[in-house]
Nucleic acid binder design. Structure first.
Lengths: 93, 93
DNA sequence: TGTATATTTGCACAATAATGCAAATGAATG
DNA sequence: CATTCATTTGCATTATTGTGCAAATATACA
């Protein structure tokens, strides 16, 4: 997981909505459920999910004809905390 | 400071270079010093600094004809940690 | 006041990214 | 094996963003 890629993935309003939506769920969601949170076409949501997945923010699991997505909570949180630590630290501290 | 704005501000390679450069310094830098880390025009760096400033990531202080920029370390770190916590937490936990 | 230096801004252009629609793919089921 | 449903992908269009150059602004200083 690369910091820059993650930030880029999170830089779009619809992707943030999608991520928030996924974060609010305890169980993985299929694309249709994810798409409820924004007004764009389902194909656009699919593409956004793909971007989030490539950034390592979410993971996909195929079950039958559906694909279930869930947030890689620990990994994303760890990356953000590590970035926080790097930013907080001056070169002398 | 808004999460989405911050992520958007951090979604460009040159702005990340600029931020890393500023983070590596203990003292505020003027635009020329900041610009060393990337090959784009000085005016472009100035614009990137403006975007980072509007996002609340850095602050500017004018001294004479120079403008010195520094990272708002604590604030940015706090925002990232808070975001990490939100992402980590499921709706039932 | 005129000149030099640091930074910002106006503007045009190039590059990237988001979007919707239609078609393609993959999988269950009659 | 045809049909249906969920998802993805190709393609064209639109919207947004990054960039460089020239000019404007702000400040110091001779």
């Amino acid at each position: 997981m690369q910091t820059e890629t993650v930030f880029k993935a999170l830089s779009d309003p619809n992707r943030m909505k999608i991520l928030n939506n996924l974060c609010s769920k305890d169980c993985p969601c299929n694309v249709g459920e994810v798409a409820c949170c924004c007004t764009v076409d389902l194909s656009v949501v699919s593409r956004h999910l793909s971007i989030l997945k490539n950034a390592g923010i979410i993971s996909a699991e195929k079950r039958g004809k559906e694909v279930f997505y869930h947030v890689n909570r620990k990994e994303v949180a760890a990356l953000l905390r590590q970035t926080a630590a790097t930013i907080e630290k001056t070169c002398c501290s």
